[in-house]
Design a protein around this nucleic acid. Structure first.
Lengths: 350, 350
DNA sequence: GGGCCAAAAGATATCGATATCAAATTGGGG
DNA sequence: CCCCAATTTGATATCGATATCTTTTGGCCC
């Protein structure tokens, strides 16, 4: 019934209602909300109190109609990311775009010619900036095509950011290092490693993190335990079979992403190798599959949703600066990863 | 440089630009766009031509500021759906919400008491409607709590829609039937079936579709080939082991969802049973895992993103009607499913 | 304490689309 | 051929938030 009353009033509390309640002008309220500096403390407090009292929430649509920023269009150009990865990126991205009143255009492409076409379509559509999720974030031709026509680009989750291109990412090296330390602390000495697709930048960087972890623990690298994968489930299956069919199989396997780790675990289940008692497995990314499979996967959590959100707001800021002629430099943002210690890793067997 | 020119102009084509170009008032353009009836053919054509010529696209944010519809808030209340399922729902939902200028509030809950709290939080936040993805779509207490305070509810992907609650769904019965026919046409006679969580409505309905498919093909049900699952990967693992450890294992297994099918495939890989040569496996839902695993899974595609989108617009319409005092009835929408014939099914072995 | 400048607060115009009401046009019956 | 009703079109106000300009306030120096 409380609700009923609200609905009778029209339901929505506006900035003007807050202003009236606080006895100030609506501009002052707007300034408080946007953390503009020119508001004195007593007024700011009164306004904050009124916002709380009236349970005011901003109408984002209205904000975005305001001059200048209306109709910002941001393209998201992707080629072959894992489906769930892109989902999460878009989840955060769309949410943030809605907040900012920007429009997101999703465009798919395949090979190089197809990339050219896709870029043209985006330019035709009048995008003001483009986000490149992996693996396109590392495609030099695509980045060049876009920057040449003056469109700012943001590389999402690249492991080797270029200084002249904005980027949002985690520290793949530190992530892999943390995971390796986790394994060595559990007593593992024979650790298998499955590399990812060699054309993606995180592949190499994660491997470097792994090597660093080994050397920290004083373990010599056994090259026979390093297998090339492709970041796909199938390649995980094959790599897992190769590692587990050895006479001296590893006691732990570090797969460069979750999909491959899931493949390894499928093989292990088949060989009736119990996880984590006989074999520890870990992945990377914390995509949904990591918590779907059983036992749940120890992995490095990339805050993908937050990274999608951050990508949109970062490139949005850049666009705003460029449009208003302010000086603007590419922005680089490093997000925090989290080591998800779940059930697929355990102490090394004797 | 084409782009540069646009940016100099301000970049965005508005309804007024179109009006000037067509030599009419902006209201007329608005009416054409919204398919209102009161526009004569010659004018409509002129306007359409101008829209095309100027590549006009509507600014959705501006539309939603207009009186009345401002600040529609739609809650999404979920408990334990698979992560990727919820992602996709939100993907479509957020996109549509942005288009309509509505706000989406995501709220999580667990048990019954927690559901009460979550409902209260949503009411407190002033939501105008609530979407319930599975499994909450079938929770009578939650639905009642909400309807009692006059908040319209939409059940997403329930298999047994209530006449008094709006719903967006696919026909689970027909989907399961189509999949079963696919298997019988391939010559399979011994088909294992893994049921889902018994508290979810699709569980039973999919099973009924399976039974219908069997009887159509003149195959008698072997109850020993029907195993209880829980819609989880782990339960698929266990059910798969049970079915494949039999003396007379089935030549095909129909898992009630993709996660369980993935579990079955992991077991099969372990037993070195090749798919699809020795065993056909199929799932249901076409979540990302279906195209992640190898071989890719034959399954029934639920257009989850579209369903999320549709849920938002359906409940938005309902809210609009209720707010403006128009007569309003719950809306039921049936989406088309697609049989995805991929690589995990093949002809029955001799 | 007066004058001056910067900071703070307010008033007003504006964004793009649409509701609403007024004006213009059409059509048809007398 | 005229007049009224129904339809089509246009003018204007409005939504919520903010840019911009204007007014007010407060502090500081002499």
């Amino acid at each position: 019934m409380k609700r009923q009353r609200m609905s009778d009033q029209g339901g929505t509390v506006t900035i003007h209602d807050v202003a009236r309640h606080a006895g100030v002008s609506s501009m002052t309220v707007s300034r408080v909300i946007n953390k503009n500096v020119n508001v004195r403390e007593p007024l700011r407090e009164k306004v904050m109190a009124s916002i709380k009292a009236l349970k005011y929430t901003m109408n984002m649509a209205a904000r975005s109609t305001r001059a200048g920023m209306g109709g910002v269009r941001i393209g998201v150009l992707y080629s072959h990311p894992s489906a769930s990865y892109l989902n999460e990126v878009m989840l955060g991205g769309l949410d943030q775009a809605a907040r900012l009143g920007a429009q997101l255009l999703l465009e798919k492409c395949g090979g190089l010619q197809s990339q050219k076409n896709a870029v043209n379509r985006l330019v035709e559509a009048g995008v003001d900036g483009v986000i490149l999720p992996p693996p396109l974030c590392d495609s030099a031709p695509t980045v060049q095509m876009l920057t040449r026509v003056g469109i700012p680009v943001l590389a999402l989750a690249t492991a080797r950011p270029l200084p002249e291109v904005s980027a949002v990412r985690i520290d793949d090296f530190q992530g892999a290092l943390a995971l390796t330390r986790h394994l060595t602390k559990l007593g593992h000495k024979r650790i298998g490693f499955i590399k990812g697709n060699p054309t993606h930048t995180p592949t190499e960087v994660r491997y470097e993190g792994f090597l660093k972890g080994l050397s920290e623990a004083g373990i010599a690298l056994d090259e026979g335990l390093v297998v090339q994968g492709q970041f796909t489930y199938k390649s995980g299956l094959e790599a897992g079979r190769e590692l587990l069919d050895r006479k001296d199989p590893p006691t732990a396997i570090f797969a460069s992403n979750d999909d491959m780790a899931a493949g390894v675990m499928a093989v292990a289940h088949g060989l009736k190798i119990s996880i984590p008692e006989q074999l520890s497995v870990c992945g990377f990314d914390d995509t949904p599959v990591a918590s779907t499979i059983w036992p749940q996967l120890t992995t490095v959590h990339q805050p993908i949703v937050a990274m999608g959100r951050s990508s949109v707001s970062t490139i949005f800021e850049r666009i705003k600066e460029l449009k208003s002629g302010e000086p603007s430099r590419p922005a680089h943002q490093l997000m925090k990863f989290t080591l998800m210690d779940r059930d697929s890793t355990g102490p090394a067997p004797k």
